[in-house]
Amino acid sequence: MRKLTGNANRFFARLICVFLCAAVALTFPFVAECEEGRAETPRAMLLMEARTGQVLYSVNAAEKLPMASITKVMSLLVLSDFIDDGRLTLEEKVKASAYASSAEGSVIWLSPGEEMTAAELLEAVIVSSANDACIALAEHVAGSEEQFVRLMNRRAKKMGLSGTKFTGCVGFDAKGHYTTAEDIAVMTAELMEKEYYRGWLLTWLDYLRGGDTQLLNTNKLVRYYDGILGGKTGTTDGAGCCLTACAERGGMRLVAVVLGCGEDPERFDRAEELLDMGFSGYEKFTPEVDSRKLLPITVERGEYSTVQPVVQDYGECVIKRGRAGSVDYSYTFVEGVKAPVEKGQFLGEYLVTLDGVEVFRSDIVAKEEVRRMNFGMYLLCVLGEMVSF
């Protein structure tokens, strides 16, 4: 074999280096570029399946950060509570106060005393992120923005959003106004369940005041992304360029959250990459339950000697595409229980994992109740044994 020259050795070394760099770039598509690159990595990102709550990808997802106009996702959820219980109708008139009309930033230029329907103002909030419209609605349903913000924080607490706190309903930078990518994903997933918002979430261009006021959707993904359901943008000096977006394909609904981008196009590029990664790399999966594993559990001092365990929750989860054959199942049970046993009482746990990572979990519970044996029951048992003997 002919010995390689020094130039040839250097050539192959450089070739290997190129392949290694390419491999790293493909493996970590969201790693920040060097100082001479074009964009910085967002401050936080997350990809979540909306219906199962499974997180498929995350970076700094629990870090508390400013959210800009993504704040309005919670504002819309609070307004949906008023719509759902009939306290706010889409047809009713809403009068703009002087305070609402003085809002800055993205606005539809409401005049003090001007009236619009709730539907028109909601569309302005959803499509073009109108701050004056949002404040007008908040004052209309709660009396003041301050009272409305209390409702926002109360709802956040009810939803378990421990990393979120609001000081306003539109999203201006302020001390004590923050959220996390995790919490935004949960808020967005619930917002997508509100069917009466869906048309506006997907509206790219519309007009108010007989065509005099243009509404242009700030979420550019509604124009072209396959399966898009909607989302919300946000931009301030403190928050940077932010986006939460939701899309659905083949029964899998994904939420992508991107916070703290340096430039406007980057948030859309990153969100699209996250969604593409989710749809191409994951699939819905329904775990199986082996009834042979669910053996009766002994009941001490009960009217029956055993109780039948059942898996409480049957549902779908998300796994890496093509890996269904590698899923593992485990069943754990209590050693025994004392009567009385309530229907639905905890008896164990059903766990589904893939490569050691949990993808689905459910309690194992009692199928029926088992009452504690009293004297009469004991006597009947004794008599029954005597007769059978």
Results as ranks from 00 to 15, higher is better:
80 S>P: 00
183 D>I: 00
43 R>P: 04
304 Y>I: 02
83 I>L: 15
249 R>F: 03
202 L>T: 00
285 F>R: 09
298 T>E: 15
244 T>H: 05
107 V>F: 08
113 G>E: 08
271 A>P: 02
23 A>N: 11
138 A>K: 04
40 E>T: 00
49 E>C: 12
120 E>L: 03
251 G>D: 05
328 D>W: 07
102 S>N: 08
99 Y>K: 15
339 A>E: 04
232 K>A: 12
346 F>S: 04
192 M>T: 13
340 P>W: 08
8 A>H: 14
374 N>T: 01
285 F>A: 12
174 A>N: 03
71 T>N: 15
212 D>H: 15
384 G>P: 02
266 E>M: 13
356 G>A: 03
77 L>Q: 07
385 E>N: 07
230 G>L: 05
214 Q>P: 03
384 G>R: 09
30 F>M: 09
164 T>L: 13
353 T>N: 06
76 L>G: 08
264 D>Q: 13
194 K>Q: 15
45 M>H: 12
28 F>S: 07
317 C>N: 11
86 G>R: 14
249 R>S: 04
129 S>W: 06
217 N>L: 08
333 F>G: 01
217 N>V: 02
309 P>W: 10
133 A>F: 12
153 N>G: 03
6 G>D: 13
102 S>F: 07
328 D>R: 10
145 E>P: 07
57 Y>P: 00
219 N>K: 14
280 S>Q: 12
263 E>C: 09
213 T>C: 10
341 V>A: 06
254 L>V: 02
263 E>N: 13
322 G>M: 13
203 T>C: 09
250 G>V: 12
91 E>K: 14
151 L>I: 01
195 E>V: 14
121 L>V: 05
14 R>W: 14
71 T>I: 05
44 A>S: 10
